[in-house]
Computed example of a mutant assay.
Amino acid sequence: MRRPLILVTGATGNQGGAVVDALLDDPDRWRVRALTRDPSSTPAKALAARGAEVVAGDMADEEALKRAMKGAHGVFGVQNSRTAGLKGEVRQGVTLIEAARTSGVEHVVYASVGGAERVRGIPHFDTKWEIEQHLRATGLPATVLRPTTFMEVFTMRGSSLGLGMMAAALGPRRPLQMIAVRDIGVFAGLAFADPDTYTGQALELAGDQLTVPQIAATLKATGRPGRYARVPRLLLRAMGKEARMLFWFAESGYDADIPALRERHPGLLTLKSWLTRTLHDHGRRPPQPPRHGGKGQSVA
């Protein structure tokens, strides 16, 4: 029996790359087709060398997507408002869903954002909710993954400013939920492998929840800079919609059921275990080039 084929969009980006990793880790179960704008890029060539079928495509081009979906059992969809713009993100998401609907795809896994169904006025949350609603209206068998803050943002350049902004909004005691991008890929793999359980579900994803001081202490304990200066709240308010997400973190924020998620995925990473794993991996191989095209969020 031929292994099912999964088309992964954004395959050289953060979330798409994590899904490709998870599926390629189970080569006896899946065939992977990786959609990218530039198959000649170094990351795309690396995916091909690992066994993925790499194809060119633009998520705003429905005909190109239909060609990429030929023979596909499932599709993983993720869009990035930072590269496509807010309207472009919605256009890409709707185009991908319509291509899946007319191509006979049996399972769509869509990467949204934690809290998309609960809060309005955060631009890149609103776009993902609009895409979710369109997906639901088509009646396609689907699973929605709603990640919380990426752990990766705490090791990016400029992370001290991000921590300072979070400190201003959250204060010292309000925790923030977070997820390792790697685990988003794992949950996508679980959804494709067990459609009877995951079809129709929307899962908010987190592996840890920590206060800003706890995040800083964890960074320091694993050899990373953990210093930050609290940004004045007046400056946050002056940012308008751009700061709405930070204030929402303090008002209600993410609400993932971490113990229940760990029952489904016992290897779910905490911030400390992710940092330790990342340090170990970097010690075993040369640093990898950064992936682009992940979720359009600065701190989530």
Rank of each mutant, 00 (worst) to 15 (best):
G207E: 14
M178E: 05
G10E: 00
S298K: 12
T218S: 09
D208T: 13
G253F: 06
R91L: 11
D58L: 01
M69N: 04
R118V: 04
H280I: 12
H265Y: 08
V212P: 02
E204I: 06
P232M: 06
K45L: 14
G185I: 05
G293L: 01
R277G: 15
P290S: 01
P195H: 07
P286M: 00
P175Q: 04
A169M: 06
A56Q: 11
H107Y: 02
G296M: 09
H134K: 09
L275F: 06
I97Q: 08
G17A: 09
R285F: 13
R118F: 12
A34P: 12
L190R: 06
I122E: 14
D196M: 13
Q288K: 13
A217H: 03
D25W: 07
D26L: 12
H282K: 13
G207T: 13
T12C: 13
A52F: 01
T222N: 08
V32T: 04
L205A: 13
A46P: 11
L176W: 02
M239F: 02
P172M: 06
P147A: 14
T12E: 08
I179A: 06
Q92G: 03
V55C: 04
A250D: 00
R233Q: 10
A56H: 04
G226A: 11
A142E: 00
V299I: 15
E117M: 08
S298R: 11
R262A: 03
R182W: 08
D61K: 02
R173H: 12
D257H: 11
Y198T: 12
V32K: 03
L65M: 11
R31Q: 08
V90T: 07
G10S: 09
E98N: 13
R262D: 08
R101F: 01
V299F: 14
R277C: 07
E204Y: 09
M59R: 02
T12M: 04
V231T: 15
V94I: 14
E63N: 05
R291Y: 09
L261H: 03
V105Q: 12
T197I: 12
A206P: 12
S40P: 06
A11C: 08
G139S: 05
G85N: 12
L145W: 10
G164H: 05
I215M: 09
F76W: 01
A167F: 07
D25K: 10
I215T: 04
E152W: 01
H280G: 07
R120G: 11
A116S: 11
F154G: 10
E251W: 01
V108Y: 11
L235Y: 12
I184F: 08
I184R: 09
R230E: 15
R2A: 15
V19S: 08
L261R: 05
Y254W: 10
S41M: 00
T222I: 11
R2Q: 14
P147K: 00
P27R: 01
R230S: 11
T143R: 03
A169Y: 00
P195C: 08
A48T: 14
R230W: 02
G294W: 02
A300F: 15
G10N: 08
T211K: 05
M166Y: 03
D255C: 13
V181E: 14
R284A: 15
A229D: 14
R233F: 05
A111W: 07
